[in-house]
Every structure is written in structure tokens, then in C-alpha cells.
């Protein structure tokens, strides 16, 4: 079936807009679309979207993470031994993380990482035939936002579409929540979110807010945040009594 932007697409559908465009313009095919000669087929079910200038992709609901190069993920260290750590990132295979891929790490000065630790890392290699490889430094050898996540936080999983929703640069969720409380978040593209706030109650509140945002429209997020704020205040006053 032929589909156009904004339609619900199923795997196998051809994208009408692209086949009819004759303009010599480079088209970027995002996730969910693949090309066979000059026809473009969808291979995921979802809504076909287009962003300017000519970026087409399928916005789909998905829980299974498929690694992509350059994405940030939250992983759990599962194995330690030799030169690499094995890290579970929720993909079909465990990723490897070299002990040298940390800021300031040398052969003598190894990073202090135990099995079970959480790391926020970047995917350096992500190919369908190979084991994914992580790094915790940028190209200048600086840690920046990557690295080990402290054990005081809380980790939970959610769908990949929710991650995309909260990480969208137009998403008001984090800024709204920041009005009332201090918190820290590491959200990986693999559907894992690590949250840390001052108290356990606050941490749970943030986590709830993020999970509740999945089904809230953009306009409803403000109400959602204020609701959570109110409940938090009530429980805190209850604890004091």
C-alpha cells in the first residue's frame, strides 16, 4: 500500500511522497525506512513522519533496543576480567567496554568499577554483525557527561518511545520538574533511566513523573508535574508528623 506523511504505516508499505518527488534532493531515511532501488519501504509499524528539510522516519512504539552508533545508553556492568568489561545495555548482545575508555585511565591506573555498577556510555561500534562497543570518553579523552553513575540513584526501564519523548528538545518535562526540586537524570536511548534526587521520596516522584509522561499530551505535562509536586508535599508533611 502507498502511504504518505502522517499515515499509519505497516512493514512493506511504500512511501508515496518519495517515489513521486522528482526533485534532485538528498533524502535522509531515518529508522523504520529502507530503500530498494528508488522505492522506499517501511519496515516498522508506526506513524510516518517528516522533518525539514527532507528527513523521513517511522515513529514507532518499541521496547527492544537495537544499538546505533553514537547513541548514549545506560548499561549495567555484568562481567569484569582482562581488558574489557561486559555491559548489559538491553540489546541482543552484551556490549564491551574497554578499561582504557575512561577519563584518566592508563594501564597502571585502572578505573574502579565493580560488577553491578551502572555506566552512562556512548556506543562507538554498533553493527548488526558485531558486538557493540562502548566508550566513556569523547574524542578528546574527556569524560564530559559520561561515566559511572553513583549507586545512590534508582534505575528503571521504559519504552524507547518514552525516552524519545522526554529527550525531545521541546519537551517541557525536565524544566517543569526542576521548578520544585533538585534532581539528576541519565536517560539512555536503550530505555533505561537512572534518577537521583535528594530523598528517596523525591527520587520516586521523579521516576513516576517520567513514567506518567508516556501517555500525557504535551499540554498535560504541566498539570502532571504540579500534581506530583502536591502529592510529594503531602507525603513529606505526613512524614514530619
Amino acid at each position: 500500500m502507498e502511504v504518505s506523511v502522517g499515515d499509519v504505516v505497516m512493514p512493506g508499505d511504500t512511501v508515496k511522497d518519495i517515489t513521486t518527488i522528482t526533485k534532485k534532493e538528498t533524502i535522509i531515511l531515518g529508522p523504520g525506512l529502507r530503500r530498494e532501488a528508488d522505492t522506499v519501504y517501511a519496515y516498522k509499524a508506526g506513524v510516518l513522519k517528516k522533518t525539514e528539510p527532507a528527513v523521513y522516519y517511522v515513529d514507532s512504539y518499541q521496547k527492544r533496543y537495537v544499538p546505533n552508533r553514537g547513541e548514549h545508553v545506560v548499561g549495567i556492568v555484568t562481567q569484569k576480567g582482562g581488558d574489557i568489561f561486559k555491559v548489559d545495555i538491553g540489546a541482543s548482545e552484551q556490549a564491551s567496554l574497554s578499561y582504557l575508555a575512561f577519563e584518566g585511565a592508563t594501564k597502571k591506573n585502572r578505573p574502579d568499577i565493580q560488577v553491578g555498577d551502572l555506566v552512562f556510555a556512548k556506543l562507538l561500534v554498533a553493527s548488526k554483525d558485531m558486538e557493540p562497543e562502548l566508550v566513556c570518553v569523547d574524542s578528546h579523552g574527556k569524560e564530559k557527561k559520561l561515566g559511572i553513575l553513583s549507586s545512590e540513584g534508582m534505575l528503571f526501564s521504559c519504552s524507547l518511545s518514552l525516552i524519545r519523548k522526554i529527550l525531545n528538545h521541546n519537551s517541557p518535562l525536565f524544566n517543569m520538574l526542576a521548578h520544585s526540586q533538585a534532581f539528576e537524570v541519565a536517560a539512555g536511548m536503550n530505555g533505561r533511566v537512572w534518577v537521583k534526587a535528594r530523598t528517596i521520596q523525591e527520587t520516586i516522584a521523579i521516576a513516576t513523573a517520567i513514567l506518567a509522561a508516556e501517555y500525557a499530551p504535551l499540554s498535560g505535562i504541566k498539570k502532571l508535574c504540579s500534581d506530583i509536586e502536591k502529592t510529594l508535599l503531602l507525603t513529606q508533611s505526613g512524614n514530619v508528623d
Binding site: 531515511l29 529508522p31 528527513v55 525531545n168 528538545h169 534532581f183 537524570v185 536517560a187
Partner: peptide, 22 residues
């Protein structure tokens, strides 16, 4: 004519997932 971009980060202009407030 086509460039394949397998990540949503570029398509939806997503921010890095590491934020801290207050």
C-alpha cells in the same frame, strides 16, 4: 539520493540524556 540514518537522535533532535537541576 538517499542517506540512511539509523538513529532517532538526528531525526528528532534529541538532547543528551544526562541532565541535572538545582
Amino acid at each position: 539520493r538517499f542517506i540512511i540514518e539509523p538513529s532517532y537522535i538526528f531525526c528528532e533532535k534529541l538532547i543528551d540524556g544526562r541532565v541535572s537541576f538545582q
